[in-house]
Design a protein around this nucleic acid. Structure first.
Lengths: 341, 341
DNA sequence: ACTCAGAATGTAATCGATTACAGAAGTTCT
DNA sequence: AGAACTTCTGTAATCGATTACATTCTGAGT
């Protein structure tokens, strides 16, 4: 049962040619003659030969795989992004390795090891909150392997990145609420140190100012992108003397938690207050009420990131490699927003 | 900047010993003398040497990584399982490769290639719906590398597996509804060809029979584990002449979709009908109303699967390797169930 | 001082594919 | 026919770590 591993040698012997010829036939069929090509492919079929990637990787100095780093594997927000990444990578014969920041930390492994020890040819970072020393290391990547950030990015570092139109999306959200007639609009933010939080918060404040609306400090409610954060924010809203009539949450999860908590207090959306999210996760459409939100296409984010990274891996040092991409977002109007009472 | 890659040779030269000694020092410090150990570790530090895994893998005939196969990366149900798997693997110095059945199919890659071409040392399958020819191939795994199924399993194949107490969970669900006073209980199933669907459906029917309750055929409502499936099922329920007063859904997503659709028709849960799910996904607790469900601990499922696979990888042919594990589930009572009107 | 077991280290083969270089075979042109 | 290419194929070195086997060193025992 456990056959001896088949090697190029075996195929070469069966085909009656040298290993070099077999290798060439496999990697670039056009350089060998028609007859050889047939002999070799027959031999491959009859022996059931399959290439040994490890050997190939050693010789070519490529791992033929890419590391994706996320803050938290259990967060469904990333699933579609991974799907997009993996889809492009596998079309290129590359595999996807996954690690979460938390685990890397727990297991005492240094992130950069993946790049250093030839396990991966490049890296896509989905976590803008990497510790500064880690960022430092990546920036001086010893083998100068490409690193790219997606969704989030890292302030102060200059990795190429894929981002969404966060400013534009935020302003579209505020405008939507304004158009419905809202004049008292609050914002539930993500975690304080997050780049998306900062960008969206600033865009929110800018747009509110441009519309000449009031913005008391406590209408910026600190959150953390999670369901629980949304619940907390809802309680903060409930406790306000002068309650905003609309709330723009920095993530869908926040918005869902917010609505859920309100509902436990007998407050109904959008009757008593309009609520918006950001992301358009799968559940947004199915929630009660279906959530008005800003949609980012996570599949495309993933694909774009993978494409950009692959092009840097395959053409290292190409000066005209795209350095960053900004992807569009769109306003999706559902039932969680309505004119104020 | 792009330094020549450091090899064992370099370390050996600096430390003034042979490559064999360096290698031994790294893999098993106890076999070398105290003084050598220090010389080598100094040399490693001063050169900044990092092992080349590809070379090691080639020589040891191990990939030091495991492939995880899921039906659909975008399904949040799997995230926690992945977290559990990855957590254990990385503690063992192993990496996790991920592929989705869909992509493998799209890219024309054969699954077994991963095992065949030395990219992975073993495989965890989270998709019970693999095509029979694929299963056939895996079963006759050429290099006899271990394969294991988790959550779902494959009828007719005898891979070791990690499962949950599906029967017990289902019966607990039915009993909970019965205890609340329900006598007319329906079941929304998963996709027809799924092993979990079949198991839970059978357990449901058994328990109903044991309780001597009626079960008209249309009270088994076909679904597909998804939100949309739940919506469809809700419309089926609405269309019934004699409506069941409680519905046990085969997944949380089904239950959420079910409740959402009812709500769009002005029907409220649990006032007009009690609804239960299965899984206890993160959102179950935050939904309105919070969902009564059967909890499976997905982190532990993942960890268990990884442990079992690793033990088979590290001790191949160990006859006393655990062949399968059945993990407990628990009833989580929240607000989506109540006594009938 | 001498033997000998055991510990520590070194030498060199090995894993399996790729590829630089050289040589053979086949074409075209004068 | 011979020169000058082009196209194909083969030989052998190479990627970087591991490890079987050989060798040297150490110290205990007599």
């Amino acid at each position: 049962m456990a056959l001896k591993t088949l090697t190029l040698q075996d195929v070469a012997r069966v085909a009656g040619v040298s290993t070099a010829t077999v290798s060439r036939t496999l990697s670039d069929p056009n350089v060998v003659s028609e007859s050889t090509r047939r002999k070799v492919s027959d031999a491959v079929k009859s022996t059931g030969y399959r290439i040994n990637r490890t050997a190939r990787n050693l010789r070519t100095q490529r791992a033929h795989s890419v590391l994706v780093l996320l803050p938290d594997l259990a967060n469904p927000f990333f699933s579609n992004i991974l799907e997009g990444i993996s889809s492009h990578l596998s079309s290129q014969g590359y595999s996807m390795l996954i690690a979460s920041t938390k685990q890397v930390h727990d297991s005492g492994e240094r992130l950069i090891d993946y790049l250093d020890d030839a396990r991966a040819d490049g890296m896509i970072v989905l976590d803008g909150g990497l510790a500064p020393d880690v960022v430092e290391m990546l920036a001086n990547a010893p083998q100068s392997k490409p690193v790219l950030t997606a969704c989030e990015w890292i302030d102060g570092a200059s990795f190429p990145s894929v981002r969404c139109e966060n400013r534009h999306g935020t302003r579209a959200a505020v405008n939507h609420l304004y158009d419905l007639g809202h004049r008292k609009i609050a914002h539930v933010t993500g975690p304080a140190d997050n780049v998306l939080t900062q960008t969206r918060k600033a865009a929110f404040a800018d747009e509110i100012a441009e519309l000449r609306l009031d913005l008391p400090p406590d209408w910026i409610i600190p959150g953390d992108f999670s369901l629980i954060g949304g619940c907390d924010a809802a309680r903060a809203w409930i406790g306000m003397k002068d309650r905003p009539t609309a709330v723009f949450c920095a993530s869908d999860q926040l918005a869902l938690g917010f609505i859920a908590e309100l509902s436990r207090h007998g407050i109904s959306v959008p009757r008593h207050v309009s609520v918006m999210g950001f992301d358009d996760i799968d559940l947004a459409e199915q929630f009660i009420p279906p959530l008005t939100t800003i949609r980012q296409d996570r599949l495309i984010i993933g694909e774009t990131a993978a494409k950009m990274l692959m092009s840097r891996i395959l053409n290292p040092g190409d000066p005209q490699a795209e350095n960053s991409a900004v992807l569009p977002v769109s306003l999706v109007i559902r039932d969680s927003t309505a004119p104020p009472q």
